[in-house]
Design a protein around this nucleic acid. Sequence first.
DNA 1: CGTCTATTTGAATGTACTCAAAAGCGGTGG
DNA 2: CCACCGCTTTTGAGTACATTCAAATAGACG
Lengths: 202, 202
Amino acid sequence: MYKNPSKFNSEIATLIKHLSEILPLNDNEKAIIEELFVPRRIKRRQFIHHEGDVCKYANFVVQGCLKMYMVDKDAKEHNLQFAIENNWIGDLGSFHSGEPSKLYVEAIENSIILQITKENLYRLYDEFPKFNKVFRIMKENQIVEYQKRILQNISSTGEERYLDFLNRYPHLLNRISNVQIASYLGVTPVFLSMIRKKLAQS
Amino acid sequence: MYKNPSKFNSEIATLIKHLSEILPLNDNEKAIIEELFVPRRIKRRQFIHHEGDVCKYANFVVQGCLKMYMVDKDAKEHNLQFAIENNWIGDLGSFHSGEPSKLYVEAIENSIILQITKENLYRLYDEFPKFNKVFRIMKENQIVEYQKRILQNISSTGEERYLDFLNRYPHLLNRISNVQIASYLGVTPVFLSMIRKKLAQS
DNA sequence: CGTCTATTTGAATGTACTCAAAAGCGGTGG
DNA sequence: CCACCGCTTTTGAGTACATTCAAATAGACG
């Protein structure tokens, strides 16, 4: 009995489905995706990218959860992004510029990701220019998300940001600890605990 | 005596130069840019986009300075972005989704911009797919900028953010009031004044 | 010169952080 | 099964960061 009736393995099938929702792909385009992306299993607490290294891969999350964060001068972590199923993660700046990264990418859960190198991604863009459009649209969507987050950060209190996080990402609550959420919101775990206590009372 | 020896007017020439620095353009590509972008003069304090409206144009700044901001429930403005020469500005989310915007775009100085409608931009992408690559790269650069800003917002104090602003955008200081800078940094004008006093003393 | 806006100053208050300690919650091994 | 370990969350007290409100001062512009 076959687990996977498609001609692609299930990791690649997930990615192809994700890309097809942005723009339908033909068989050639699906084939090159399968050729250029490499699956990788990551254990909880394992790093796929480290500060000081040049970011070598663009990463698509098939299963699991990862975080990308900065470590400040006081050794405190600040979460820039979480990535779960169908999200992309990686230091885009370092990836394209080739300069050393200031970010870490670490698995929060055991995860399965698909990786593509810069050389292969550029080959993808060259041989199938349509992917420029696919990725342009993806990047535009990401910009809109970042704009919302910046406006939140400069205009609202920690409590308001937490309430918005609850509304926007309810499915993340079971998977991510409050320490991680606090680091994403830009408050301390202690203060997030106080926010939660206050909200529970009212 | 001709002011402008190029076959393009000077506004379009500025845009073509900007785009060519991302990816060289041939004559056909330059011609379609001239065809699809429309110059417009904007006076200080004039709006080119208003909350509640659908964003109809992508805007390239040839000369001058504009700001994009949100107004919160207490009628306070929060600056998401400044745009000077060679910057783009507009509510990307509303532009692509067709949903009403929550942002304003207003000129801080008398300005000259080039506008393109959604229909014409999509025509540009269709007829000259290369522009998908040009704009993909532009969006990626913008994402990197936004990532830096988010990390700053969640990891540093108002004073640190102001110092970083001074380093990063020294050329903006003569053009933008402290009220506007405070709104961009996410602090009150009163507090920015205190920061500046403290820095001047030390 | 007067008007409008931007900036500064001061005092009181609210938001958020630090430090330290206690309480809760899985896991793991004896 | 329980004792222990490591990690997360909570609590409390004191402090720092940032805001509000009100008023004074300083610049910019017609």
